[in-house]
Design a protein around this nucleic acid. Structure first.
Lengths: 267, 267
DNA sequence: TATAAAGGTGAATCCGCAC
DNA sequence: AGTGCGGATTCACCTTTAT
């Protein structure tokens, strides 16, 4: 299988082509099915640039469920017994996704809270500021206990204290946020590299294969490369693929944390 | 309906006796179905006193689901159109509960993260420290928009900054933790009063009726009384009821925050 | 009496292998 | 599938005991 590449195509169709037990880690950032109805305005009357992409539209819960059941089933099939899977979502979709994953036999290891240091406030004062997204980290099933978890490395990364399931990380903004030719954000839901860094650093070894079925602008690939991991991305939209390729090819720097693992291997 | 009382009986049977549209707020802390298998020991060889109560045992996911569908349906029926419901859970159950609530038409307003300041570590280094529980705050449905939310009060309570969906609160320990005659914790999952304080303060008015279908040792009732709200608790176990009654009868002090609302009403 | 050391504990899906 | 055992493993508090 060719690695460090982006496959252009439909997520489900492409996942079906993977052999069983072939992937070490899956990171999935699926559509959230946000069900946004009306435009949202800030107090100063400027419009909030929300997620209204066609790919985030589903007709009903069951349509969204069907979609998730299908791609998650394929993920389970192609995941190695020692592998694990991460899925990120918000309250709009994570309870449906989590329920499906449990029904498919995935075994939840942690529900990690991405605690945003700079969330968008609730302008109308109708709710608490929605300051989190949730990452579900799961092994292939209850009996698969040999999943990779670099406990000591994450402890070191966290200042010699065991890392908790709450990760305080800022939104992906400014220089890190990819812009299109029009100067606007190229992807509506680009994730911060720090998030992927913790995911990949904690649950893979160097040389492992990381698969991202919703590759977008390639944050997973960029971080995998910086950490000496192999990656495969699946993405439908050519515009995203173009940006991701450019981004990943430009990477020359390695995160120093990638070397920490070597120490463990030598020891 | 008699308020400020504890009903002894089965949660579902008792909920069925409530009239429609009669309750302002529901706080539910249902069994989590933790599925604990073996004993767990700390590195110093002391045994962790885990949750092994009979009330937390369910035969299967579908058995647990059926239970939750039934009591949540009743909750929806008896909730006022201006009311809202909170359900707390961990990753063991919250994805099933959340999925069911969505299917029943509840409308998620926030998924609040209880970020524990002093969680129990993962002793064997097999996962991240599980540092959170999740509270789902929902209105009766998408079209019910007149739910109570004391935005200004919570902002004041939070040092004049809008409160976010992440609440850093310690575990219920020491003096606050109710003990039995044997000196051991009376209830295995007693919640901190600070958690209920934020729930009741933010989403009810003085004099409102708060219902807790899994009353336990009565944290909801105690906080409701301190905040000048009425409460009804449903609880099956006599031992818990005895403790809760004693606890609530002993309360003479009011949380000063209860008075804040009067200011709003006067204004 | 003051300070230090030791002990207790919390909604926890917490190991791996040999026999 | 169950049992037994060697070995690696923890954070923030507060309470109790020791120096």
């Amino acid at each position: 299988m060719k690695v460090n590449t982006i496959i252009r195509g439909d997520c489900i169709e492409e996942l079906k082509k993977f052999p069983e037990n072939s992937v070490d880690l899956i990171f999935a950032d699926p559509p959230y099915n946000m069900q946004l109805k009306n435009a949202l305005y800030r107090p100063n009357n400027t419009k909030v640039d929300g997620v209204d992409d066609a790919w985030d539209k589903f007709g009903s819960f069951s349509e969204y469920d069907e979609f998730c059941i299908t791609w998650l089933k394929e993920c389970k099939r192609i995941l190695k017994d020692t592998g694990s899977i991460w899925v990120i979502g918000s309250y709009h979709n994570i309870f449906r996704v989590g329920n499906i994953m449990l029904n498919l036999g995935f075994w939840i290891l942690n529900d990690v809270t991405w605690y945003k240091t700079n969330p968008m406030p609730n302008f109308l004062g109708t709710r608490f500021t929605n300051a989190t997204e949730t990452l579900l980290w799961c092994s292939k099933g209850e009996k698969y206990k040999k999943y990779t978890f670099n406990h000591k490395m994450m402890k070191k990364y966290n200042g010699d204290k065991q890392m908790t399931s709450v990760w305080q990380i800022g939104l992906c903004i400014r220089g890190e946020r990819l812009k299109g030719d029009d100067g606007k954000k190229a992807h509506s839901t680009q994730k911060p590299e720090e998030l992927l860094k913790r995911v990949i650093l904690s649950t893979t070894k160097q040389g492992d294969l990381v698969l991202d079925p919703f590759f977008g602008t390639g944050t997973t690939g960029a971080v995998a490369k910086k950490l000496n991991r192999n990656f495969i991305g699946i993405e439908r939209e050519t515009a995203y693929i173009t940006l991701a390729k450019k981004r990943i090819n430009a990477i020359r720097v390695m995160f120093p944390e990638a070397e920490w693992e070597e120490e463990e291997i030598i020891k």
